[in-house]
């Protein structure tokens, strides 16, 4: 049961990550791959504060989210003057550069990572506690983003995404809107990073590399980009399927290729049969 609860915590964290990423890339149309680095900023801020300060854990998590938000504004203020491919390259450079910095600083633990992050809750209640906290945060994130995108501001966001020239011709400030979307999405990712650091008590730069960007992007695309529940479905599928396959108890020589093949076939099938994402197409079908 606790094993499932641990996977539940991880799924909840990735629902927060993929949903906040969908706000940026799906609704805002901002091509960025740097989402994991804001997750990392939140995780490292909360982890370092947990080790070196006596501040309460919730405050450290919030500060992690704020640090990510500040970093995202710094990136956005310069990078959002450009868009499309240039933004993609700028975000990638930001991610790789910051990861190099983390790897080469002693106080972050360098490439070996940050160990000995204190656990806030101990005993049998620990995992259920984190499951409830991360679950509530995931629900709040999904509903919060839904509230944003279905309201008047959301319509402005999609208008900006679909026709930026017309949007600015109407006197609206596209850049400030992009910065706000980017800051909200990255701030949420940073908060998820704080929860991650407290729950798993170990973080390393390798966990926030470009491969992580690809994983979160796949969750969003597979579930349905620009939909409320698409990233939720994508996160659940992409985290649950590989773990479920291990329960087939196949010999390692068969398990290793089988796991890769089954996973790849499933992703390709979904993308061929439902190119707009699982949730995206089902909405059309309805």
């Amino acid at each position: 049961m606790e094993y499932l609860a641990t996977i539940g915590v991880l799924i909840a964290i990735y629902v927060i990550l993929s949903s906040s990423y969908d706000l940026i890339i799906g609704y805002g149309g901002l091509s960025t791959v740097a989402h994991p680095i804001f997750f990392a900023i939140g995780a490292y801020t909360a982890g370092l504060l947990a080790i070196h300060s006596s501040l309460p854990a919730p405050l450290n998590v919030i500060l992690g989210g704020m640090a990510a938000m500040v970093a995202s504004v710094l990136l956005a203020a310069s990078a959002l003057r450009v868009s499309g491919d240039y933004l993609l390259i700028a975000s990638l450079g930001f991610q790789l550069g910051l990861l190099q910095l983390i790897k080469n600083l002693d106080f972050t633990g360098g490439p070996g990572g940050l160990t000995a992050i204190p656990g806030t809750v101990t005993g049998a209640a620990r995992t259920p506690f984190f499951l409830v906290v991360s679950g509530l945060l995931a629900v709040a994130t999904v509903l919060g983003i839904r509230a944003i995108v279905t309201g008047p501001y959301g319509r402005a966001i999609t208008a900006m995404r679909d026709e930026e020239l017309a949007f600015t011709a109407l006197g609206r400030d596209a850049t400030s809107m992009k910065i706000v979307i980017f800051a909200i999405g990255c701030g949420i990712a940073g908060t998820a990073g704080g929860v991650y650091a407290y729950y798993f008590q170990y973080i390393s730069p390798d966990q926030f590399e470009v491969l992580q960007s690809a994983a979160i992007l796949t969750m969003v695309v597979l579930g349905g980009m620009g939909t409320t529940f698409g990233p939720v479905v994508g996160a659940i599928l992409l985290l649950a399927i590989p773990r479920a396959i291990t329960f087939l108890n196949l010999p390692p020589s068969i398990m290793a290729p089988t796991q890769g093949i089954i996973f790849t076939v499933l992703v390709l099938l979904f993308l061929f049969l439902r190119p707009a994402g699982i949730v995206g197409l089902s909405r059309k079908t309805l």
Binding site: G112, G113, T115, F200, Y202, S204, D206
Partner: peptide, 8 residues
């Protein structure tokens, strides 16, 4: 890295 991650 794996040993460090599973230690907690």
């Amino acid at each position: 890295a794996v040993v460090k991650a599973v230690a907690p």
